[in-house]
Amino acid sequence: MATIGTFTRNQDGTFQGSIRTLTLNTKVRFVPTGVAESDKAPDLRAYAGNNGIEFGAAWTKRTKDGARVYHSVKLDDPSFPNPIYASLVETADANTFSLVWSR
């Protein structure tokens, strides 16, 4: 697993940061969706750059022992060969989060 992004959580519940890979280098905001339309609806939407193009979503999860909360992230775009799956996890630094890629 590799860290592909770093984020900070704002007081309004948004996450702001950037994602950097060999082919992707963009500023990203994760924005709360508000009231869920269904049990499977995402909790956050991901928007790229200043133009606000939606290219992903995140679902709030808990670790198996229930001790920690994280976000399961799926990013996708027609330019990607496959979706990117990652976890947005809190780091040891308060209010700082890492986007950790997984295959």
Rank of each mutant, 00 (worst) to 15 (best):
A2I: 09
T3A: 05
G5Y: 11
T6K: 08
T6C: 10
F7M: 03
R9N: 08
R9D: 06
N10S: 13
Q11L: 12
D12G: 01
D12K: 02
G13D: 00
T14C: 01
F15P: 02
F15Y: 03
Q16G: 12
S18L: 13
T21C: 05
T23P: 11
T23L: 14
L24K: 05
L24V: 09
N25W: 14
T26L: 12
T26F: 15
R29F: 09
V31P: 08
P32Q: 03
T33K: 13
V35H: 09
E37C: 12
K40C: 15
P42M: 02
D43Q: 00
L44F: 05
L44S: 03
R45L: 15
R45G: 13
Y47Q: 00
A48V: 02
G52T: 00
I53G: 13
I53R: 08
F55S: 07
A57K: 08
A58S: 00
T60D: 07
K61A: 13
R62P: 08
K64A: 14
D65M: 01
G66N: 01
A67I: 10
A67Y: 10
Y70R: 00
Y70V: 01
V73L: 04
D76R: 06
P78G: 06
P78R: 05
S79A: 13
F80C: 01
F80E: 02
P81G: 02
P83V: 09
P83T: 05
I84G: 04
Y85N: 07
A86R: 07
S87G: 11
S87H: 14
V89W: 12
E90W: 07
E90I: 08
T91W: 06
A92N: 12
A92H: 13
A94F: 05
N95D: 03
F97S: 01
V100L: 06
W101C: 09
S102F: 11
S102M: 13
R103H: 09
R103S: 10
R103F: 11
